[in-house]
Amino acid sequence: MSTTLEPTDRTRIRRGRNRAVADRTELHALLADALVAHLGVTVGDHPVVLPTAFAVDADGPDEGGTLYVHGSVGARWLQEAGDATVCVTVTELDGLVAGRSAFHHSMNYRSAVVIGRARVVTDPAERQHALDLIVDHMIPGRSATLRPSTRKELAATAVLAVPLHEASMKARAGGPVDEPEDVAAGIWGGHLPLTRVVGAPVVDHQTPAEVAVPDDVRARALHRA
């Protein structure tokens, strides 16, 4: 697999090309950090963009790796997405940029756009692998502690795979890019870093008092993001 993001006509960055990221490993690092993706698909006669949990298998069966999302088999968006071209976007907000003018206010971010033909995962082993990856993307190691999925649960769940071959990434970091005269005027400029914080586990009221917080949940809570 190439370590470089090769642009296509659909993913070539035309605005803000100085913020383009060409290293595929940085794309995978972003996808490892982020928790929510937005999937765009045409449903009937109109576009729909929906937030969804996801996971990535860098060594998946599709060229460039595989991004997996899941949903109810009854969801119309998922039915329409099977064998259709979809657009998946992922964004992590890293800071608020306070410029010396309204025009130069901005945000620090890492964002990715993935375009590809989605396929419905029908192989039972791949589907179970994808569902385990999605759970472990939320809480690493969690899937190994759970009971096996029932036939009813699997029958109600569909998994889509999107190849990561056709993707682009942009990133911004640091302070504002201001006009020299605004800087010379002595106006304050800078940025406010943003981070995601995981709080302490909140025990469900149906959990027996003697049941301790499992190690995988405790480890996730100790991780800042």
Rank of each mutant, 00 (worst) to 15 (best):
V114Q: 06
H70S: 01
V73F: 08
G116P: 02
T66W: 01
R100T: 08
H104F: 09
A81R: 04
V69K: 04
V88T: 14
M107P: 02
T85Q: 13
E80D: 12
C87L: 06
S101Y: 02
A102D: 10
H104P: 05
M107N: 07
E92Y: 07
S111A: 15
D83S: 15
A102G: 15
T66Q: 00
V113E: 05
D83T: 14
A112V: 04
I115V: 14
R119P: 02
T85A: 13
V121Y: 02
V69R: 00
A75K: 09
L96W: 10
S111C: 12
T89H: 04
V73W: 09
Y109N: 09
Q79D: 12
T85V: 15
I115W: 12
E92D: 15
L78P: 06
G65H: 03
G99E: 12
T89P: 01
L67V: 08
F103A: 08
M107G: 07
R117I: 14
D83K: 10
R76E: 15
R76L: 03
S101V: 03
V90A: 00
A118L: 11
T66Y: 00
V114Y: 03
H70D: 15
Q79S: 11
G71W: 04
T89R: 06
V121C: 13
A98D: 06
I115E: 13
C87N: 12
V120S: 13
S111W: 11
R100G: 00
R110K: 13
G82H: 11
R119V: 05
H70N: 12
V113K: 03
R76P: 06
T85F: 14
G71R: 02
V121E: 03
C87E: 07
T89L: 06
R117H: 09
I115T: 10
V73L: 11
H104S: 12
I115L: 03
L67H: 00
A98G: 09
R76C: 07
V113M: 14
R119E: 15
H104R: 11
A84L: 01
H70P: 03
S72T: 12
T91K: 09
L93A: 07
G65T: 06
G74N: 06
Q79M: 11
A118S: 08
S101A: 13
A98I: 08
S111D: 04
T89Q: 14
A112F: 03
G116R: 03
V114H: 05
L93P: 06
H105A: 05
G99V: 04
G95N: 05
